[in-house]
C-alpha cells in the first residue's frame, strides 16, 4: 500500500519536472528560464529523496544533502549576473 502511494508520488514529481521544462521554453526572457531552472533543482532534491526509497539504500540521502546546500548558488550567481554586480 505504502509503496504504491510512493510510486504515484514519484510519478507526480516527474510530471511537475516536465511542466517546469515547458516554462523553460515558452516565453523567452532569461529570468523566466532561471525560475524554471530553480524550480527544477528544488523538484530534483525531492526526486533524489524518492530514489533513496526506490533503491532502498538510505546512504544516498547524502547526495540530497549536498544538493540542498549547493544548488541555490547557481541561481544566486545568475541573479548577480542579471543585476550587473558580479
Amino acid at each position: 500500500m505504502a509503496n504504491i502511494i510512493l510510486q504515484i508520488a514519484g510519478g507526480i514529481m516527474l510530471l511537475s519536472l516536465v511542466l517546469s521544462l515547458y516554462r523553460f521554453f515558452s516565453s523567452g526572457t532569461l529570468v523566466n528560464r532561471v525560475i524554471a531552472f530553480d524550480t527544477m533543482t528544488i523538484i530534483s532534491i525531492s526526486l533524489i529523496a524518492m530514489i533513496t526509497h526506490y533503491s532502498g539504500r538510505t546512504i544516498y540521502i547524502d547526495v540530497a544533502l549536498i544538493y540542498g546546500l549547493l544548488s541555490f548558488l547557481g541561481v544566486v550567481v545568475v541573479a548577480r549576473y542579471l543585476e550587473k554586480s558580479l
Binding site: 533543482t41 530534483s44 526526486l47 533524489i48 530514489i51 533503491s55 539504500r57 546512504i59 544516498y60 547524502d62 547526495v63 549536498i66 544538493y67 549547493l70 544548488s71 548558488l73 547557481g74
Partner: peptide, 22 residues
C-alpha cells in the same frame, strides 16, 4: 546527477552535483 544516483553511483552523483551543476 540524478541519473548517476539511479545507476547506483553515489560518488559520481556527488561530483556531478558539486562540480557540474555548481
Amino acid at each position: 546527477s540524478v541519473m548517476y544516483l539511479l545507476m547506483a553511483a553515489p560518488d559520481v552523483a556527488m561530483t556531478e552535483a558539486a562540480i557540474g551543476s555548481g
